[in-house]
Write a protein that binds this DNA or RNA. Structure first.
Lengths: 223, 223
DNA sequence: AAATTAATTTAGGCATACCTAAATTATACA
DNA sequence: TGTATAATTTAGGTATGCCTAAATTAATTT
């Protein structure tokens, strides 16, 4: 069995690979709040286990075996987040940290039981896809909110789960995945967004908007 | 924060203190499947943290602070066991190992939410008392089944949770805490027990009986 | 009381996973 | 192309928690 740290490295490499592309030692170290030298050491170890490919100075890539483990951990994490919200009523800004600890520890049996309890869900409370038990991730098209134009309407698809304070803020505005809103005004020079949501008018700062992703974007009349 | 290993030591010292009395380095090491030298090392560390008292060659005792932590971990473990049975339908012979891993990892918030979900229970699925959130353990009088005489009836109070195979066996006989039975015959020379349980007649081997504890013992007519 | 046996502790080592500091390699620019 | 800068790796050190083997202390037996 792998150590928790090794699992965290694999998970992080997967995520960085998804969004960025090339995963350098430095990027990985920064992402994990660890010094580059420490990342070098772990990469070496993972390489001997055939979980990553690595060429000096050229970055890491997951092997199929490494990717399978990364997806398994991500599946645990996201199932746990949803389970904590649905079964125990934990607020959505609290589930990330709890799941971060539990994901390394639960058995396959518990994973299966939570999956069944939740009705085989495909997204966690923040809208991130839950890989199925074979590691298949439903492909989704999420557009950054910052790309929206005046007058466009859409559905919240996903929000970044890392910052609890941001999540509390978004929760207070009801910006949960699945919620519809319409862009009323985008202030110039990278200013804030004014949106219509559930009949109310709300201002979303640029920084917050960067952490929100949407889909079902449609052009509507600007009044 | 304490390491998982340190928590396991405190928990084990507490349990050995409960049943036995004096906890020697060797007993503790054997209980934890560790060499005596390793136990010596951890005891030293726990002593510097004022969690145990220790005199060379005279055994360990928990300080109040150490006892509080031990009870906290035991509370986690037993709440988790009951939660896994009630909320996720895990069979009672599977919950011990799962709880053993989770007990070190759950937050106080999760502990409180499980406690509420379960209705502030006082015993785990094996009948062991769950300390309350202040570390108070309800005192119970559990008599070993091996002390029962012909014709006595009683309620199952607690069974040893360590051996899954035994638990499966007891489960198949419906010997869960709370279940009533009556001793029909005790075979001489430390032989097996024949009991009446839910209308059926069942034979319980001596070894199994050692792991069963009862209460509400009453003398009934021997037919 | 001395000698044997058992329990405990000390000493020294290993693996994990982190760190800092120094050395190396690659890249960018003048 | 040579040199400065940035990224990466190597080298050596820390702490945890385990191990074995040797030394010490206590308890038991005769």
């Amino acid at each position: 069995m792998l150590t928790h740290a090794a699992e965290d490295y694999l998970k992080s490499i997967y995520k960085l690979q998804e969004e960025g592309g090339k995963v350098s030692t430095g990027i990985l170290a920064a992402y994990l709040n660890v010094k580059p030298a420490s990342a070098t050491g772990m990469i070496k170890k993972l390489k001997t286990m055939n979980l990553v490919s690595h060429e000096r100075y050229r970055g890491v890539t997951l092997t199929d075996a490494g990717k399978a483990i990364a997806l398994e951990i991500i599946r645990h994490h996201r199932l746990l987040e949803l389970y904590l919200v649905k079964a125990l009523g934990v607020p959505w800004d609290g589930v990330h940290d709890e799941a971060e600890k539990l994901e390394h520890v639960i058995s396959e049996d518990m994973e299966a039981r939570m999956d069944e309890f939740l009705g085989y869900p495909t997204a966690d409370p923040h809208g991130a896809p839950i890989p199925d038990k074979n590691g298949v991730v439903a492909q989704t098209e999420h557009i950054p909110m910052t790309a929206l134009q005046n007058g466009q309407s859409c559905l919240v698809a996903e929000v970044n789960d890392a910052d609890p304070a941001l999540l509390r803020h978004l929760g207070s505005l009801n910006l949960y995945p699945g919620t519809a809103f319409r862009v009323k005004e985008v202030a110039p020079f990278d200013g804030p967004f004014t949106i219509d949501i559930a009949g109310k008018q709300v201002v979303i700062g640029r920084e917050a908007a960067k952490h929100i992703f949407v889909d079902n974007v449609q052009d509507t009349e600007t009044e």
